[in-house]
C-alpha cells in the first residue's frame, strides 16, 4: 500500500465576462477497490451561485454548478490524500456497452488494418490486451499540438502521432475489436504535470489498468479521477455559458508521497 497526496488545479480565463455559466466537473477522485480517497476538498472560484453533487451513469462523482453572475475567471482546485491499495486492479464487472465502439473509438480502415497486423492468438485476455498496448506504444510518436480533444482513434492512428488521450482511444478501439470490455480513464500520475489518460480492461471480475503511453500496467502512483467509454463521456470539465468570449486554460497537478 502506498499513500499519496494530490493537488490538481484548472484555471479558465475568459477574454470577456460570461454569465449563466453551468458546469459539470469530474475532478474529485472517488474510492474504489484500488484507491481510497480521504478528505478530498474541492474549491471553486468565484464563490458564487450554487454547487451540488451528482453521479453519472458511468459511476463518476460529479460536481455540478451554476453561476449566473458575470465572471471573467473560473477555477477549481482539488486536494486530498489517496491510499493506493493495489497497483493496477480493482474488482468489478462491466456493463455491456463497454464492449462496443463509442463516438471517438469507431474503427476505420487504419484501425482495422492495424488490428489485423497486431492481434494475438493468445487465449489470455490480459496477454492480448497488453500486447495491443505495446503495439500502439511502438507505432505511435508522442507529440503535443498535433491532435485536439475531439480527435478520433481512427484519425490519430492515421497520423501515428498524438498524446495520452489518443493512445488510449486507439487502444480502446483495438480492444473492442478484440471483444474486450474496456474503458477510458482520466487521472493523475506522478511524472505528469497535467492530467493523464489510460485504459482499463475488464476480465469478467476485475478492472485492470493499462497505460499505453508508457507501455506498462498502471502502478501505485496513478490516481483515477473518472472514466467512460471514451473522453467524450467523461471530460474533467464541461461547461456552457453566455458571452461571446474565448478562454485560456491552465492546468497543474502534483502527486507526491505522503
Amino acid at each position: 500500500m502506498k499513500r499519496l497526496r494530490f493537488e490538481y488545479e484548472t484555471k479558465l480565463e475568459f477574454t470577456r465576462s460570461v454569465t449563466s455559466h453551468s458546469f459539470t466537473l469530474r475532478c474529485v477522485p472517488f474510492s474504489d477497490g484500488r484507491q481510497v480517497i480521504t478528505e478530498p476538498v474541492c474549491d471553486i472560484l468565484p464563490k458564487t451561485g450554487s454547487i451540488w453533487r451528482s453521479r453519472d451513469s458511468f459511476g463518476n462523482m460529479l460536481i455540478c454548478g451554476r453561476m449566473d453572475e458575470p465572471h471573467a475567471e473560473f477555477a477549481f482546485k482539488v486536494t486530498g490524500e489517496a491510499q493506493i491499495l493495489n497497483s493496477c486492479e480493482s474488482y468489478g464487472t462491466a456493463p455491456e456497452f463497454y464492449r462496443f465502439s463509442s463516438p471517438l473509438t469507431v474503427p476505420g480502415e487504419n484501425i482495422a488494418a492495424f488490428y489485423k497486423e497486431n492481434a494475438s492468438e493468445s487465449a489470455d485476455l490480459l496477454t492480448r490486451a497488453v500486447g495491443l498496448s505495446e503495439s500502439v506504444y511502438k507505432a505511435m510518436t508522442y507529440e503535443r499540438g498535433v491532435t485536439r480533444v475531439g480527435t478520433t482513434a481512427e484519425e490519430a492512428m492515421e497520423g501515428r502521432v498524438g498524446v495520452c488521450q489518443d493512445y488510449a482511444h486507439i487502444l480502446l478501439a483495438l480492444l473492442r475489436m478484440d471483444g474486450i470490455r474496456s474503458r477510458y480513464v482520466s487521472g493523475l500520475a506522478f511524472e505528469c504535470g497535467e492530467t493523464h489518460a489510460w485504459v482499463e480492461v475488464n476480465d469478467g471480475s476485475r478492472w485492470i489498468g493499462i497505460d499505453p503511453t508508457h507501455n506498462r500496467l498502471i502502478g501505485d502512483c496513478y490516481i483515477k479521477l473518472c472514466h467512460g467509454r471514451d473522453y467524450s463521456d467523461c471530460p474533467i470539465e464541461r461547461g456552457i455559458y453566455l458571452g461571446n468570449a474565448g478562454s485560456v486554460q491552465t492546468i497543474s497537478s502534483r502527486v507526491t508521497d505522503s
Binding site: 453519472d56 456493463p95 455491456e96 456497452f97 464492449r99 462496443f100 465502439s101 463509442s102 463521456d233
Partner: peptide, 16 residues
C-alpha cells in the same frame, strides 16, 4: 446486440 449497443438511439448516459 448489434441492433442495440451501436444503434444511434442507444444512449449510454441512460443506462443503469
Amino acid at each position: 446486440e448489434d441492433f442495440v449497443y451501436i444503434s444511434k438511439g442507444y444512449l449510454a448516459p441512460c443506462a443503469g
